[in-house]
């Protein structure tokens, strides 16, 4: 492993072990995408082969078929303690992105998660966000406190000096933990290659297109690409000038969409 990947991994493992030591009821969020699968792999490394807390998958009912298949296969192979979070009421009412993406993401993702957290009383959620994904994510802390209404108070983030992370305090609050905040997209792929981490087949090009970031089927579009192997993806990323989340419709609906989504508790 390159010294860069090793130092990224060391820091991620340090963060995961801090969270495991400091919180009573942590859980990790797994979208089945490359970043959160990398975080699961890092958990297995940090805790010597197993993920010692529940793995939450937020099911919007609109994910790609390949994502469900991949999820169920890995959940078996890695012996994951899965919790599937669904907002059944919203799903039954027929909500969809057609009536507004902010409303759809909020109902099917944020609300489903909110319900899941309060049912299980989780005090920490481990999330695979990275600073280089988006300008707003570049402002995140390693520990990010959320109030009981799930809100991110981006105007008043804590002092996070050196590795002295500050958790949320108070009834009903929880802390978002970000173990790969300091990684780039390229680092993730180089790590996946090096560690032979299983990835969803949707990332690899078929008929001149591939997915670079995975979300719900209606709101995610593939990019033009012929990268059909991990090596080709790595080469592509070294050259590209396109943003990773370019294919994610919910970021672009309105001005400061990502900030609004995050302030409401979106991942």
């Amino acid at each position: 492993m390159s010294s860069r990947l090793r130092s990224l991994e060391n820091r991620s493992i340090y963060i995961l072990r801090e969270a495991y030591a400091e919180f009573d009821r942590p859980a990790v969020l797994w979208s089945t995408g490359k970043d959160s699968t990398t975080v699961l792999h890092l958990c297995r490394k940090a805790f010597f082969g197993e993920v010692p807390f529940p793995v939450i998958h937020i099911d919007t009912g609109r994910k790609f078929r390949e994502m469900y298949e991949f999820r169920d296969r890995l959940a078996r192979e890695w012996n994951l303690n899965m919790i599937i979070a669904r907002n059944e009421d919203a799903l039954n009412s027929g909500i969809g992105p057609e009536k507004g993406k902010l409303a759809c993401c909020t109902a099917l993702k944020t609300q489903a998660l909110l319900k899941c957290i309060s049912e299980h009383d989780f005090d920490a959620l481990i999330l695979a966000i990275r600073r280089d994904e988006h300008g707003v994510r570049a402002k995140e802390r390693v520990y990010s406190p959320r109030d009981r209404n799930f809100r991110w108070d981006y105007r008043d983030q804590p002092l996070e000096v050196w590795d002295y992370f500050q958790r949320a305090t108070g009834e009903g609050t929880h802390t978002r933990v970000h173990p790969i905040l300091h990684w780039r997209e390229l680092d993730v792929w180089e790590f996946i290659k090096n560690e032979q981490i299983p990835v969803n087949p949707l990332y690899f090009a078929r008929n001149g297109k591939r997915y670079r970031s995975l979300g719900c089927e209606p709101c995610t579009s593939p990019i033009e690409s012929n990268a059909a192997t991990i090596d080709e993806i790595i080469e592509e990323l070294k050259r590209t000038k396109t943003a990773e989340r370019a294919g994610r419709a919910q970021d672009k609906e309105k001005a400061f969409m990502m900030m609004k989504l995050r302030a409401l508790g979106y991942m």
Partner: peptide, 22 residues
């Protein structure tokens, strides 16, 4: 504006929180 990604930062024309970019 490439760094000041918060709406408040744009409105107030100042940086509020730290940003780290690679």
């Amino acid at each position: 504006y490439f760094l000041d990604a918060l709406e408040d930062e744009m409105r107030e024309e100042r940086t509020i929180d730290t940003t780290a970019l690679m």
